[in-house]
Structures are given as structure tokens and as C-alpha cells.
């Protein structure tokens, strides 16, 4: 079963279907088991070019999980170096076409723009955050790493990871919820802020 609950823990394994995604709600802590694929800026650029050209992709998208990460090199005898998430918003322009083709879960850090959030609702998918800057901690859950495409991109190559208990928090679910906006609202202290008026998140990340 791709999404299971055990002792209050939500376990997620690809491939995921619409029914699995439907169970995941903003603020849920989940643990990933099994296969996830890495892709970040340069790999996304190539994947989109491959889609446009009708070429084969490094991995089949339907039901899969992408993790936005560029790890540090592994020391000899180790599987991987530090492996925390990178800023997701930079990948916003590339994301809706992948969701349209069946991608079901994405792991990164920081918020997503309106176009991605709309696409998550439309195509029934979910965006999760891993703890940014917890690269050493997260690396411990990665049990196997194989570079499967774009090796010339070094840290940005596409890697197939096998993980055991990789922790993430649901940030944007398929119901339009957004943890970052809800969380900020809850803990905002307007009395201390005085005249300052809230601004929305920037639409684009650097």
C-alpha cells in the first residue's frame, strides 16, 4: 500500500495514485520508503526539453516522487554526503507540465507559487517540505544512490534514491491548503508589528 498508517506514523511509497494523495493533508508528518528521484534546476531544464522534443525521460513520471536535492559528494565507503532540500520556488516554471504527466509528490523547501498550487489541485498531487539545512540528518535515511541520467551535471545529475524513513511535512495538499500561509497566520503578533502590514510571498525565487 503506497500510503499506510502505523502507530500514528504515515508511511508513503511510490507509486502513488489519486487515492493516496487524497489522504495527505497540510501539516501531516510523513516518512518516505522506497524509490524517489532527484532533479533540480539544470535537470528540470533538460527534462522539459525532452518532453517538448518527444524524447524519452530519465524516469517514468506517473505515480512518482521527485526530491529537489543536490548532495555533497560521498566520502569513500559512504552512500551519499549531506542531502537536504533546495528552494522549490525556483522550479515553479517547470513543475505544472510534470504534474500534468502524472508526477504525484514533490519534496523541497519553501513555498510554491499560485500556478503550482493550482496544478497540485488540478492533477491531484502533493508538495512536501523536508527540513532545509538538515543535510546530515536526512542523509542517514538514504540507503542507495544510483546516477541514472545527466551525469555531466555532477551534483545536479538525476539520481535514483532508495530511502528508509525519509521525513517530510505536507506543505501544499490537493485541497489548496498551504502550511506556510496558515502557520504564519497563526503565530503572527500584529501588536508587536505595529503599523507594518503583511506582504504575500514573492512570486518568484532567485
Amino acid at each position: 500500500m503506497p500510503v499506510t498508517r502505523e502507530n500514528g506514523e504515515i508511511r508513503v511509497s511510490a507509486p502513488l495514485g489519486d487515492d493516496d494523495v487524497a489522504q495527505l493533508r497540510v501539516g501531516d508528518h510523513v516518512k518516505f520508503f522506497g524509490t524517489i528521484y532527484t532533479s533540480r534546476d539544470a535537470a528540470h531544464k533538460r527534462i522539459i526539453a525532452a518532453i517538448d522534443a518527444g524524447d524519452a525521460l530519465p524516469y517514468e513520471l506517473p505515480g512518482q516522487v521527485i526530491y529537489y536535492v543536490g548532495p555533497t559528494p560521498a566520502r569513500p565507503g559512504r552512500i551519499v554526503g549531506a542531502a537536504g532540500p533546495t528552494t522549490a520556488m525556483r522550479l515553479d516554471p517547470y513543475t505544472p507540465p510534470l504534474l500534468e504527466r502524472g508526477l504525484k509528490a514533490i519534496i523541497g523547501k519553501g513555498g510554491r507559487g499560485p500556478a503550482v498550487k493550482d496544478a497540485l489541485q488540478k492533477y491531484h498531487a502533493v508538495y512536501l517540505i523536508a527540513i532545509g539545512g538538515a543535510g546530515a540528518l536526512l542523509s542517514k535515511t538514504i540507503k542507495q544512490l544510483d546516477v541514472i541520467a545527466y551525469e555531466d551535471l555532477g551534483t545536479e545529475s538525476v539520481k535514483k534514491l532508495e530511502v528508509e524513513g525519509f521525513p517530510a511535512i505536507v506543505c501544499c495538499d490537493m485541497y489548496g491548503g498551504d502550511l506556510l500561509l496558515e502557520g504564519k497566520e497563526q503565530y503572527r503578533d500584529q501588536a508587536t508589528l505595529g503599523a507594518y502590514q503583511s506582504v504575500g510571498p514573492a512570486e518568484k525565487a532567485g
Partner: peptide, 18 residues
């Protein structure tokens, strides 16, 4: 978890952040 990360990085010589 961030404090745990600090300990692991130091102990196992894994960078704090990738």
C-alpha cells in the same frame, strides 16, 4: 531536528548542509 543535525554533522563529518 536542526540541533540533531548539528551533532550528526560534527560526529560523522558530514556537511551540515548540502
Amino acid at each position: 531536528e536542526l540541533l540533531e543535525n548539528v551533532d550528526i554533522a560534527k560526529r560523522d563529518r558530514i556537511p551540515l548542509c548540502q
